[in-house]
Design a protein around this nucleic acid. Structure first.
Lengths: 337, 337
DNA sequence: TTGTATGCGTTATCAA
DNA sequence: TTGATAACGCATACAA
């Protein structure tokens, strides 16, 4: 069994109360007493029993990571198919661990999942929740309901219409800037027909598209809808769309809304007999180092997942005052543009 | 605030004890009473307060996923660089959620991480632990110490020397079989010089190599050490080794101990001017569907990560009697052999 | 079959 | 500055 505060108290010839005061850094205990107790605590590696603490109203050192699975019915989530998602999760775990917090992962799809989640908050089982995958506008109702209940939460890449409140902070990427940087770079290389492989209907995709459009317009190229194709961030559709964009040199450069689609564009270009970057230039978005291990040294716009995760954890722990945080986007050189 | 058993009791005109008996499925409560109470429980969506439960000795519905990070010093773990790892984590989360359990992720490297982990067990904060990444022999001491403490644990792909005990179950892949299947397939295709890109010193790698060697010997090709190269499951080294193996058609077929290395071999073959599978055949191991999204339709040996995760969770919950479980390996056709 | 009483380990309130 | 005591919500031994 574990040693309890009671026993520590006995060993230090004080009462549990005093031990508790030391543990919780109360001011009203003399340095000498504190020191004596601390020594015993360390000697016996005493740590308060978390459940007992929670029961008295303190929150657990636990952050719940809520992953949306809008895949009705099946419980399996598709996060594992998205390298960006998986990296984010990995970084969140690391960041939380650094602050002495544990991440509990919960994938939510059905209504019962939500009530289970709600219970965790109500039970103070968790200090806060970090929500990812709630990127579509239609998912914001759910988020807003939780916000209304006053739970402490952080939402990464929220869809449109998220409430502003004191108990929620939204973390966004500089998506518009990302689109603008990428497109500007391609234009500066002398490309005239710069195409965009857009993402889906989520906000980040729309903003990346806006950045692209702004760069095109500022360069006097106007907005040519035939140079824009709407994908879904996945490879298969992107490949088909890229073929359309590149056939007959309709476009000579492509900015894709993520790296996965950029690689599809590269494959399409190669299959059409073009060389990269001599004939066709490609720029991705996110920068996924993992792709380098399979031979794709993509030029991309880097969104620092590590930074984002750190922001999220800090915000979850109340260490960030701003309720809207932006994760920087920056050019990442590669071999494809 | 949340409704408590006290209030449910009042509403049902019974005592807390009876409510508790219903919640915990005690036999000694008449159907009628049970039904009446259940209705109220459902109506008010009552759920017992987890911390209060834990405090009375019951274990939390929580499984801690312990990920080894032998990356001394830095807290960042490298799991995100391994697609296999990330898939496993994703599947573990899904599986646990299916049983109503939450997965808490903890990456352990320093000594203080271990004592924190120990505390979670001691506090009954978790029902069991699933350990991954403890695949090297030198890590088994750590695992064995935890086993000795009687914690309920599941170790996936353990290194050599893990203790056998009632509170631990080991989950292995059919690695020897995987190596044997792959190599036999290549031999059956008429290849004479079948090379092996081996993994590192962990057990799974050694077993895959053994399977390869057995197939070669049974086919009368003996064991030619010059056809074997020892890699580290990563792409960079694998590429170099593959160049050595394939130059001058030293080998015409390669079985790699994982898909990442297989892709390196493919790249090496292409860079040497060979066609796949006409000139050089390549078979990987694990089967990572993700690679298909970047254009690699690898022939591989599939280890069902989903099955493995399900086994692990079941074992963690005490639903598996056997203390040694094997995850099946099977041939997965592709375009490269 | 059911209710009462006690304890789990901690924090907070109050009194000393 | 400190200690005794109540409270948190539940499970369980015991009594009825």
């Amino acid at each position: 069994m574990k040693i309890t505060s009671e026993e520590i108290a006995k060993l230090a010839h004080v009462s549990r109360s005093t031990v508790s005061r030391v543990i919780n850094n109360y001011p009203n205990v003399p340095d000498e007493t504190r020191k004596k107790i601390m020594e015993i605590i360390e000697k016996y590696e005493y740590e308060p029993h978390s459940s007992a603490r929670v029961l008295t109203g303190k929150a657990n050192k636990n952050i719940v990571l809520c992953i949306s699975d809008y895949n009705e019915g099946r419980k399996r989530w598709r996060g594992s198919e998205s390298p960006f998602f998986m990296r984010l999760i990995a970084e969140l775990v690391s960041a939380a661990n650094q602050y002495g917090y544990v991440i509990s992962v919960s994938v939510v799809s059905s209504k019962s999942d939500y009530s289970k989640l709600e219970n965790m908050f109500l039970n103070k089982d968790v200090t806060a929740g970090i929500f990812i995958g709630f990127e579509f506008d239609f998912q914001m109702d759910t988020i807003n309901q939780f916000i209304d209940k006053g739970f402490s939460m952080v939402v990464i890449d929220p869809g449109e219409g998220m409430k502003e409140a004191d108990n929620v902070t939204g973390i966004y990427s500089e998506d518009e800037k990302a689109g603008y940087i990428a497109t500007s770079f391609l234009l500066a290389q002398g490309h005239k027909r710069v195409a965009h492989l857009a993402g889906d209907s989520r906000l980040s995709a729309r903003h990346r598209l806006e950045g692209y459009a702004r760069a095109m317009e500022e360069a006097g190229m106007g907005r040519d809808e035939s140079l824009i194709r709407h994908g879904n961030f996945e490879s298969e559709l992107a490949y088909k769309l890229a073929l359309e964009l590149l056939r007959d040199e309709k476009a000579t450069a492509v900015y894709a809304a993520n790296d996965t689609m950029a690689i599809s564009a590269m494959r399409a270009a190669k299959d059409l007999g073009y060389r990269i970057p001599e004939d066709i230039a490609v720029i991705g978005c996110d920068y996924t180092p993992f792709f380098e291990t399979v031979g794709y040294y993509l030029t991309s716009i880097k969104i620092s997942v590590k930074t984002m995760a750190d922001m999220a954890v800090k915000a979850a722990l109340g260490l960030e005052s701003s309720k809207t945080l932006y994760c920087q986007a920056e050019f990442k050189p590669g071999d494809t543009a």
